[in-house]
Design a protein around this nucleic acid. Structure first.
Lengths: 190, 190
DNA sequence: ACAGGCGCGTGATAATTGTCACAAAATTAA
DNA sequence: TTAATTTTGTGACAATTATCACGCGCCTGT
């Protein structure tokens, strides 16, 4: 819980009063490896602050899983589109390790927002930070070659390379598993 | 101005009172073709609601322009990262046609937000919509092949294909200009 | 201990894409 | 209208990547 408090304070001013008002929206949840936080076709009603472990979001297309994001400790995982619009999610979010999160329920969060402007601000900043991360990954794919994408991750998100299996990283980077394996080999040589 | 009002109402409840309070943050701006809304290395201090025309954001890398997004009428253009954090933008935004926007100044917007919760909510929803669009485009690159990316744009964003020159679309889709030209040719045959 | 599955590496070959060069078409400016 | 510039198309070839097939090492559960 302390981590989460620190996370909030890193985003915005937050009084003890606001913290109290936020409590009804907040609940601790535990997921086993491969358990779903969000299933395709259901509505995303929560922001998941990740306390321990990590998870990934992925589409299922023609029997294949296409990974679109990985979320680690001290990050928010959610489907921003579904959460915002109330429409069904087009993809899944699943725990990759035993996962401990603090879940912020949408309805309760909105209620709390109306009681304290700081909570509304918190919500906005959570979303902004989420969006910023999305954007930078989006650009990664546009401006770099497969080789350079891996290099970018190595320097900016080394944790990701250590924790995410290669075959899952591959679809995230938009290349075949074998290709990524070969790129990695070449890079080691240098 | 009416379009902008409609846009706001499509996002959130918004009283005449809030609209009045928003005015100081709001200014109409006109850009010529190829004029910059945001230059690499400067801070993004505004949200640009596009009234007429369109613009694009792009990185400049090794003398080449890498397009990362296109923004059309009734959309918000901005650098969400720079706007949020106050840090320098890593990329440019430039008008692709004569452009008319309503600019929302950051400082004034924050001031207005403190006076009316509806404005804070508006800001949050603007950012959310922006993030949603970013995310869907980000996923586009991960889950589709170059061929299918074009097809996706054809069905979901036909306007983009009509208005954006092919050589600019190419870097946005992450392929060479010549490749896109050939893909397009093949698709016509079918 | 051992069977089965998972994650990774690698060879061979096909398919796709990038690069360079040049020309045609379309648009804009003079 | 003409000239200049921009945008697009295309051929040839190189480079990169995907796909298929297979084997190896390492967990994990029984």
């Amino acid at each position: 819980m302390e981590n989460f408090k620190t996370y909030i304070h890193s985003l915005t001013e937050f009084s003890d009063e606001s913290w109290k008002l936020l409590q009804p929206a907040l609940s601790e949840q535990v997921f086993k490896k491969n358990e779903f936080l969000l299933k395709e076709g259901t509505v995303c009603n929560a922001l998941f602050y990740i306390e321990k472990g990590y998870c990934r979001s992925f589409y299922e297309m023609e029997g294949e899983e296409k990974n679109i994001a990985f979320f680690f400790e001290n990050e928010i995982a959610t489907n921003i589109e579904s959460f915002g619009s109330g429409e069904k999610s087009a993809y899944n979010i699943v725990a990759c390790e035993p996962l401990c999160v603090f879940s912020l329920d949408k309805k309760m969060l909105y209620r709390a927002s109306q009681q304290a402007p700081e909570i509304e601000t918190l919500g906005r900043k959570c979303i902004r930070r989420f969006a910023t991360k999305q954007e930078s990954f989006s650009n990664l794919l546009k401006i770099y070659s497969a080789k350079n994408r891996l290099h970018y991750l190595e320097t900016n998100y080394p944790e990701m390379l250590q924790r995410v299996p290669l075959y899952q990283l591959a679809s995230f980077l938009g290349v075949a598993r074998e290709t990524l394996s070969r790129i990695r080999k070449k890079n080691q040589a240098v």
